[in-house]
């Protein structure tokens, strides 16, 4: 089981790398198409006359991403079977799960809103995360006592992964929003759409992130006796949640729409990564990311 999981990981890595290439060439070819005067208006590509190779490159990107996602599912499932508990107990497992969540959210948004261009940014983030996973130990170690609560462990981390995936997507949308100033790059989705997608990601993830913090507090109460002790990891996840709370209110204040709220999305994702890699910055009771 363990070696199946490892093979799956490698396969996923390769597929994801190829997918990133395909999406990158898709971007380039869309750009050429736009320069040549073809209509490449987002969100839906259907109907618009597009350079045929752009569409087919994009489709390849999607197919490869679906493959990478399937292999990653295998990595986690085989590991789950081999370890006998949810594969969320060390940095390796958590990184793989993070990428899994991000790909899941990305594929959902791509199929729902036809926004392939986001992949140009999302996939490199995923690839970096998988590369990181490849550098840390993937051994299955027995669970230390604090992690021996499989229900809380599984739910707490699974919810975190879904939330982080959506925040990664919002981040990609925000970066493209800032890049595509005054909608000058016609090969990118329009700003209004990117703004909306960034918001959609937060809409999906914000309740989940609240749940992550709350489940963390429940777990802290059960394992340590206190639901809140300003443990750095706890605190960092609260900061993350607050930043996205700020983002939501910023959308109500006119002067903060668009540009400034896009910066908040980027800061928010930086906070996600900070929370995630937190135990490299501070001590604390969490035994992993």
């Amino acid at each position: 089981m363990y070696s199946l999981s490892q093979y799956s990981f490698v396969a996923s890595f390769v597929a994801l790398g190829l997918a990133a290439l395909a999406y990158a060439s898709y971007g380039v070819s869309r750009r050429r198409a736009a320069l040549a005067g073809y209509a490449v208006d987002a969100p839906m590509e259907g109907g618009a006359p597009l350079l045929p190779n752009a569409t087919s490159l994009g489709r390849w990107g999607t197919i490869l991403t679906i493959n990478a996602f399937a292999f990653l599912t295998g990595t986690l499932a085989f590991r789950w079977a081999a370890a006998g508990h949810g594969p969320f107990s060390n940095m390796y497992e958590f990184s793989v799960a993070f990428v899994w969540g991000t790909l899941a959210v990305h594929l959902y948004f791509e199929s729902r809103y036809g926004l392939r261009a986001l992949a140009i940014l999302v996939l490199p983030v995923c690839l970096a995360m998988l590369a990181y996973a490849a550098t840390v130990s993937s051994r299955i170690d027995p669970l230390v006592p604090a992690l021996q609560n499989s229900l809380l462990l599984t739910v707490h981390v699974a919810v975190a992964i879904a939330a982080y995936g959506a925040f990664a997507l919002s981040f990609a949308a925000a970066v493209l929003f800032l890049v595509n100033r005054e909608d000058r790059f016609r090969w990118l989705p329009r700003r209004a759409i990117l703004d909306e997608v960034g918001y959609k990601g937060v809409m999906f993830a914000f309740p989940l992130m609240a749940l992550v913090v709350i489940l963390g507090a429940v777990w802290a109460k059960v394992a340590w006796g206190q639901y809140w002790s300003w443990d750095p990891k706890e605190t960092a996840s609260l900061v993350t949640w607050l930043i996205y709370g700020g983002y939501l209110h910023a959308r109500v204040v006119r002067g903060w729409r668009g540009q400034r709220s896009a910066y908040l999305l980027i800061i928010g994702f930086a906070a996600v990564l900070f929370t995630y890699f937190g135990n490299y910055f501070f001590g604390g009771l969490h035994s992993y990311g």
Binding site: A236, L238, H249, A250, F282
Partner: peptide, 17 residues
Amino acid sequence: ALILILLIALATLAGTL
């Protein structure tokens, strides 16, 4: 509200660092 939320986030971050 927005400013307060962001300030609290900043203060909390300072508390972790």
